[in-house]
Simulated assay, not measured.
Amino acid sequence: MVAYLAGHGIAGLSLRPLARSLGHSTYVLTHHFATKDDLVAAVLDHLDRRQRERLRAFHAKAGDRPLGEVIRASWRWHLDEDLPLVRLLHEIEGLAAAGRLRGPSVSRMLADRAAFVAGVLASHGVPAEVAERNATFLNAAYAGLQTDYLTTGDRERVEAALEQLIALAEAWTRPHPGPTPPPP
């Protein structure tokens, strides 16, 4: 189902062709997904679960990785392996922002993503009180870079900007010296 939606989009989704591509009747789909929003929620859950599993496996292979390695690995997965899924995700987010999708699935997914990234930042030494705010900023900037690449195809320029974002994110993980004590 996700592969079909990645190839055909969701804005003009009709259940009949989707059901046919899956080898099921429309009734089977409507039994499992009462509304288009329910179907979108299932797709978002799948995409979110896939990303989290990849990141967990990435950390498990070699222990703690520098934050920049995590961001670069995620970028490579998205652009080299999952580009149609990235397009689908941005389409879903755009439809939700335009008010064309109802229900809490997109806002819940964004909040869950921010919480997950905040946990990653905290595991890299970012104080908990700023990790959520920084995770929201990091997610928004990362998504904006993806949108720029999807729109322009200018990978070199966009990845140079990604390196700037990584440098900023890694600066959050370095200890900052406290105030210098006055001389004796």
Rank of each mutant, 00 (worst) to 15 (best):
M1G: 06
V2M: 00
V2A: 08
Y4G: 09
L5W: 02
L5Q: 04
G7Q: 15
H8W: 08
G9P: 01
G9L: 10
G9A: 12
I10L: 13
A11G: 05
A11L: 03
A11W: 02
L13M: 03
R16K: 04
L18N: 04
L18Y: 00
L18M: 03
A19D: 05
A19Y: 06
A19M: 08
G23P: 03
G23I: 13
H24W: 08
S25C: 09
S25Y: 08
T26L: 01
Y27K: 07
A34M: 00
A34N: 01
T35W: 02
K36D: 03
D37Q: 11
V40C: 04
A41H: 06
L47A: 08
L47S: 12
L47G: 12
R49H: 11
R49A: 15
R52M: 06
R54N: 08
R56G: 07
F58A: 09
K61N: 09
A62P: 01
A62E: 12
A62C: 06
A62G: 14
D64E: 12
R65C: 10
R65K: 14
L67I: 10
L67K: 00
L67W: 04
G68Y: 06
S74T: 14
S74P: 00
S74M: 09
S74V: 12
S74Y: 05
W75H: 07
R76E: 07
H78P: 02
L79D: 03
D80M: 09
E81S: 13
V86F: 00
R87T: 05
I92E: 00
I92A: 04
E93C: 11
G94C: 07
A97T: 03
A98V: 00
G99C: 12
R100L: 13
R102P: 00
G103C: 10
P104M: 05
S107R: 15
D112Q: 14
D112S: 15
D112C: 11
D112N: 14
A114W: 07
F116T: 12
F116R: 10
F116L: 08
V117N: 10
V117M: 14
G119D: 10
L121K: 05
A122P: 02
E129Q: 10
E132L: 14
R133K: 09
N134E: 15
A135T: 03
A135L: 02
T136C: 09
N139M: 11
N139F: 04
A140H: 10
A140V: 11
A141E: 04
A141F: 01
A143H: 11
A143P: 01
G144N: 09
L145A: 08
L145M: 07
L150Y: 02
T152H: 05
D154Q: 15
R155E: 13
R157Y: 00
A161K: 14
A161P: 02
A161V: 12
A161D: 06
E163T: 15
E163G: 13
A167F: 07
E170R: 06
E170I: 11
A171I: 05
R174H: 11
P177L: 14
G178F: 08
T180I: 14
P183G: 09
P183K: 09
